[in-house]
């Protein structure tokens, strides 16, 4: 979640082909690309934007981190508070992950996103991976 990433750079290659395919065709393609990127961005929620992308890139399972956090924090509010504090002030001794994990991936840098966004992301994290209501 500390791994924020800018997604979606505007394409500019239409300038190089203006003379070959005509102005209207290139303009249409550009618009379609912008629309596609906008649609992709709008389909992602705060958690996806703030946490998932980077975790995928780093190949760190959010399920595994959640289950480890669950072992330590148990309840929703407790977990949110614990993780929030950790993400703001990451330390090896307060991490829910093991030594081997930390040796391999290192310690995350402190998150600087605003509180509201972080709270929202943590709420989504809980809802997505919680055990409650999923046992039978």
């Amino acid at each position: 979640m500390r791994y924020t990433k800018r997604v979606g750079c505007a394409t500019a290659h239409h300038q190089n082909t203006r003379n070959q395919n005509g102005v209207q065709q290139h303009t249409l393609r550009g618009l379609m690309a912008i629309l596609l990127i906008t649609a992709t961005l709008s389909a992602q929620d705060t958690f996806d934007r703030v946490c998932v992308t980077c975790h995928i890139e780093q190949k760190i399972s959010l399920r595994q981190t959640f289950m480890n956090a669950l072992l330590v924090y148990s309840g929703r509010e407790n977990m949110k508070a614990g993780l929030k504090y950790f993400l703001r002030h990451p330390r090896r001794d307060s991490s829910v992950m093991g030594e081997a994990f930390l040796d391999k991936y290192g310690l995350a840098k402190p998150l600087t996103i605003d509180d509201a966004t972080l709270d929202e992301a943590l709420d989504i994290y809980w809802k997505r991976y919680t055990v409650q209501g999923k046992l039978h």
Binding site: Y73, S74, G75, R76, N78, V131, Q132
Partner: peptide, 9 residues
């Protein structure tokens, strides 16, 4: 039950 007395199952 979890730490916050919420039933899990």
């Amino acid at each position: 039950y979890d730490l916050e007395y919420v039933p899990i199952f």
